[in-house]
């Protein structure tokens, strides 16, 4: 086989701590198929009732912004302060806005 040392692909684990909460990255596990991935994630990352729901996704399927592109991606939003409510002046006395 020649593959005897292979630990299987890496999967990233995301856990929701309670209903309604966002899914948070918990870590990674190795597993050889989807079914095993979700079981391994459960046995590794939810041993202390950490979650109510869980996702796993193959690490290689994640698309990430490269650090060298980070400024091009994220800095342009720095000066768009008009996207924030505090940018606007509302006359005193106006309520519920």
């Amino acid at each position: 086989m020649g593959n005897t040392d292979n630990q299987g692909p890496l999967w990233e684990v995301f856990i929701q701590t309670k209903p309604g909460a966002p899914y948070k990255h918990a870590g990674a596990v190795h597993a050889y198929d989807k079914e095993m991935a979700i079981e391994n994630a459960r046995d590794t990352y939810t041993r202390r009732h950490e979650g109510t729901a869980m996702w796993v996704v193959k690490s290689e399927d994640i698309v990430a912004v490269q650090p060298e592109d980070a400024d091009a991606f994220f800095d342009p939003s720095d000066d768009k302060i008009y996207r924030h409510p505090t940018f606007y002046e509302i006359p005193d006395g106006v309520k519920h806005i």
């Binding site: 086989m1 593959n3 005897t4 292979n6 198929d33 095993m36």
Partner: peptide, 14 residues
Amino acid sequence: AWVREASIAYGKKK
């Protein structure tokens, strides 16, 4: 080793 081999083979088939 044989368990990991089997898992690799099964994973590929699946």
